[in-house]
C-alpha cells in the first residue's frame, strides 16, 4: 500500500488526538508528583531585583503582650544583607502557614550548624496583627531573624503575592532567584532550594 495524500489526511485527527492525549498523560503524572499545578501563577519578579517597599515594623515588646522582640526590615536592609535570605510570607490565620512553621524552624536551625551553606529566614506577616503573629510564633516555632508586619497587605501586593504561604530566595545584592507559592517541604528544599544555595556560596 502506498501512502498518498489522502492517507496522510485521514491520519491527521489521530495524530492530533495522540498529541493531546500525551499532553494529558504528562499533566496527570505532574499532578501526582506535584510538578504540574493548574492553579500555579508564575511570579514575574523571579530572576529580577527586589521591589521597592516601605519599611515594615517588627515585633517590639511594647506592641505585644509577651516579650518576644523581632526587628522589622526595610528595602535597604534586605538588599544590603550579606547572606542569602529566604523571605517567607505567612499569616497567623492561614492553616498551611502555621503547619509550615515547625519545618521552617528546623531549617533555620540547620543553617546555623557549621558546614551548612549560609541562609537566614525573614518573615512577612500578611494582613496580620503583631499580637496574633507573636502568639502563633511562640506556640509553633520562631524561625525568623526579622519579621515585618504587613498589616494592610500593600507590601505583599508590591511583591505580587497571590496567597499565603509564599517564599522567595533573595541573594546578596537583592536579586530574587527562586519563588514558590506552595508550602516548603523537605522534598522541595532538597530538590530546588539547596542546589541554589550551594551554587551561591
Amino acid at each position: 500500500m502506498t501512502l498518498n495524500r489522502r492517507h496522510l489526511l485521514t491520519l491527521l485527527p489521530l495524530i492530533g488526538a495522540t498529541g493531546l492525549g500525551l499532553g494529558f498523560a504528562r499533566m496527570l503524572q505532574g499532578l501526582t508528583t506535584g510538578r504540574f499545578d493548574p492553579h500555579a501563577i508564575n511570579n514575574p519578579l523571579t530572576h529580577y531585583a527586589v521591589p521597592h517597599f516601605a519599611p515594615l515594623s517588627g515585633l517590639t515588646s511594647s506592641s505585644t503582650p509577651q516579650d518576644l522582640s523581632i526587628p522589622g526590615f526595610s528595602y535597604e536592609e534586605l538588599t544590603t544583607a550579606n547572606q542569602p535570605i529566604l523571605l517567607n510570607i505567612w499569616a497567623s490565620w492561614c492553616l498551611p502557614c502555621v503547619e509550615e512553621l515547625p519545618f521552617l524552624t528546623n531549617l533555620a536551625h540547620r543553617h546555623t550548624l557549621p558546614g551548612a551553606p549560609p541562609l537566614t529566614l525573614w518573615g512577612m506577616a500578611y494582613k496580620d496583627t503583631p499580637a496574633n503573629a507573636e502568639r502563633i510564633l511562640q506556640r509553633y516555632g520562631q524561625p525568623f531573624q526579622r519579621l515585618g508586619i504587613d498589616d494592610d497587605g500593600t507590601t505583599a501586593i508590591e511583591w505580587g503575592v497571590t496567597g499565603v504561604p509564599e517564599s522567595f530566595l533573595i541573594l546578596p545584592g537583592g536579586r530574587i532567584v527562586w519563588h514558590t507559592s506552595s508550602s516548603l517541604t523537605e522534598d522541595l528544599y532538597q530538590t530546588e532550594l539547596l542546589p541554589l544555595l550551594h551554587s551561591a556560596s
Binding site: 489521530l14 492525549g21 496527570l28
Partner: peptide
C-alpha cells in the same frame, strides 16, 4: 489515569480505524 486509558481506547481506536 483510568479515564485517559478509556479515552485512548475509544477515541484512539475509532480514529485509528478511521485512518
Amino acid at each position: 489515569v483510568f479515564i485517559l486509558t478509556l479515552l485512548a481506547l475509544f477515541t484512539g481506536g475509532s480514529l485509528l480505524l478511521f485512518a
